[in-house]
Measured scan of single mutants.
Amino acid sequence: VPQRAWTVEQLRSEQLPKKDIIKFLQEHGSDSFLAEHKLLGNIKNVAKTANKDHLVTAYNHLFETKRFK
């Protein structure tokens, strides 16, 4: 089981690129989880459509539901 890579403050910070969060989610989330949160596909394309709040919610949801690969 992966550990949380970032704190809530870090997740919301401008310093953390959306692409980093997407990469983490794609590496650790199950396909059904990723599909549900519309996070499947090319990281660049996902970054265009997903806002930061959406990614933070998905990140927290992944750990709450433990839907890891």
Score class of each variant (00 low, 15 high):
Thr65His: 14
Arg67His: 09
Lys18Glu: 14
Leu39Phe: 03
Ile43Leu: 10
Ile43Gly: 06
Ile21Phe: 02
Gly29Met: 01
Gly29Ala: 10
Asn60Asp: 12
Lys69Met: 05
Val46Gln: 05
Gln10Pro: 02
Gln26Leu: 07
Val8Met: 08
Lys38Gln: 12
Lys19His: 15
Ser30Phe: 02
Asp53Leu: 05
Phe68Lys: 02
His28Thr: 13
Asn51Gln: 09
Tyr59Leu: 03
Phe63His: 03
Ile21Gly: 00
Gly29Asn: 00
Glu14Asp: 13
Ala50Pro: 04
Asn42Arg: 13
Gln15Leu: 12
Thr7Glu: 14
Asp31Ala: 12
Lys38Cys: 15
Leu39Arg: 00
Ala50Gln: 06
Ala58His: 02
Ile22Asn: 00
Phe33Ile: 02
Arg12His: 14
Ile22Trp: 03
Thr49Gly: 09
Lys48Pro: 07
Val8Thr: 13
Phe68Leu: 03
Ser30Gln: 11
Thr65Val: 06
Leu25Trp: 00
Lys48Cys: 13
His37Thr: 05
Asn42Gly: 10
Glu64His: 05
Glu27Ala: 08
Asn45Cys: 15
His54Cys: 14
Pro17Gln: 11
Asn42Ala: 11
Leu62Glu: 01
Thr65Gln: 12
Asn42Glu: 14
Glu27Tyr: 05
Val1Gly: 07
Thr7Val: 04
His61Asp: 15
Leu55Asp: 01
Ala5Ile: 15
Leu39Lys: 00
Lys69Gln: 07
Leu40Gly: 09
His37Ile: 04
Ala50Arg: 06
Asp20Met: 10
Arg12Pro: 04
Thr57Ile: 14
Phe68Ile: 04
Asp31Leu: 12
Arg4Gln: 08
Gly29Cys: 06
Leu34Ile: 06
Asp31Trp: 15
Leu16Cys: 15
Asn51Tyr: 07
Val8Asn: 15
Lys48Glu: 15
Leu25Pro: 00
Gly41Met: 04
Glu9Phe: 02
Phe33Asp: 00
Glu14Met: 08
Phe24Ser: 02
Asn51Asp: 13
Leu34Arg: 03
Thr57Glu: 13
Asp53Cys: 09
Ile22Cys: 02
Tyr59Pro: 00
Ala35Tyr: 12
Lys38Trp: 09
Thr57Ala: 10
Thr49Val: 11
Leu39Gln: 00
Ala58Met: 06
Leu40Lys: 11
Phe33Trp: 12
Thr57Pro: 03
Thr65Asn: 10
Ala5His: 15
Lys38Val: 05
Gly29Val: 01
Arg12Phe: 15
His37Ser: 04
Val1Arg: 05
His54Gln: 12
Leu34Asp: 00
Lys44Ile: 14
Lys52Glu: 04
Glu36Ala: 08
Leu62Val: 03
Gln15Phe: 08
Phe68Ala: 03
Leu34Met: 04
Phe63Gln: 02
Val56Tyr: 04
Trp6Gln: 12
Lys66Tyr: 11
Asn42Pro: 14
Thr65Ala: 13
Leu25Val: 03
Val56Ile: 15
Ala47Asn: 06
Tyr59Val: 03
Ala5Thr: 11
Leu55Val: 08
Arg12Cys: 15
Asn45Tyr: 14
Glu64Tyr: 07
Ile43Pro: 10
Asp20Cys: 10
Arg4Phe: 12
Val8Tyr: 08
His54Asp: 13
Thr7Met: 03
Val46Trp: 04
Pro17Val: 08
Glu36Gln: 10
Ile22Pro: 00
Gln15Glu: 13
